[in-house]
Each structure stands twice: as structure tokens, then as C-alpha cells.
Amino acid sequence: MKTRPELDLVDAPVPSKKELDAASAAIRALVGGSIDRFDNEALLALALGDDVADEAILDEERVDANLLRHALDGQGEHPLAELASALRVATGSKEVDELTHERLVRRALHERENRAAPRRYWPIASAIVALAAGIALLIGNVTADRSEREVAASLPRLRAAAATVALIPSRSTESLFDASTAFGARGGESARVGRIVASRASDFRANRFARWGVR
């Protein structure tokens, strides 16, 4: 069974928009609360006769205006803030920082030096390098000729000596390791190679000294 207020609602005609707005206003007046900030701004602007109130302020515009404000305060960037900055410096009399200025002067002067130096000294440097290369070639040829002659002269003697000297022959590296122990699946490669190199280097030196007849 329906209560009396519910029956009243069922029987009552549908309220018009005007009535609903009035009811909302009455509720707001009774309950309290704050007006929307943007609505308040619009009402203020209207009351103060500001031209902004002539047309509705779009939310995007408000957001962009806020971005501009932050950019003007040095937080973030905005194309219009760049323009504002340009206006500010165009009419101001801001001086260049002294240290920056000195750096620019020095850079310009040194840049010239750096550019001029290669141009000025390049022919001289080229001539010196060419001369040195010529001398080195000449000395190199002379030395090479002499070395070749000396080697050719000593070759029969060396061959004879080599023939009479017993050299250590090439052989397997098996003897360097314990045949009963298998290599590990991983690791130990460097140590094994190191042992082979040390052994064979010793053989190589011994053979060379033997060939030269010093052993």
C-alpha cells in the first residue's frame, strides 16, 4: 500500500523546467554551498563590465590562459609567453652579462687564430713533412740494401750452422697435460693456453739461439 506522499507524487503533474530550476535554487539556498568558480568569474566580469564577459569563456581558453600565466612566471613554455618576453626585452635596456661578453670576444679572436694558423703554416709544414719523408726513404733504401747484402752473405753460414744444430722439433702438446684427467666442460682454457705458450716460447728461443750459434 502506498503512503500519502507517494500517492501525491504519482498524481501530481510533471514539473516544468522553470519549476525544477526554482526547486534547485531553493534547495541550494537551504543546503548552502559555493557557487561554481567559473560561474562566479562570469558573473563578476558581467557586473564589472569586462569585455571578457561579452562571450563565454571556454574551458580550453581558461586552461590555455592558465598555461600562459605559468609560462610568464617561468614555469613551462607557451608561444605567447615567448612573444611577451620579446616585447619586454625590445623596450628594455638589458645589458649583456659581462662574463658572457668576454667569452664571446675571446672565442671570436681565437677562432680567427685557429682558422688562420693552418692557412699560414700549411705550406711550411707540408714542405717539412715532404722533406722528412724523402730523407727517411733515402736512408731506408740504403739501410735495406746493406741489410740485404749482409743477410745474403751470412745465409750460407747460417744454413750450415742450422744443419749441424739439433733443433727442438714440432710436437704435440699432450705431454704438457695429465692424460688421465679429462678437461673440465667449462673453464681452464686460459690456463691451458698459457701453459702451451710458455712452453713453446721457450722452445722457440732455444731454437733461435741455436741457429745463431750462441748456444
Partner: peptide, 8 residues
């Protein structure tokens, strides 16, 4: 805040 919009 209206100034921000005006300046923009």
C-alpha cells in the same frame, strides 16, 4: 583569473 584570460 579574469586578468589571465584578458591577457591571453
Amino acid at each position: 583569473s579574469t586578468l589571465d584570460v584578458v591577457l591571453h
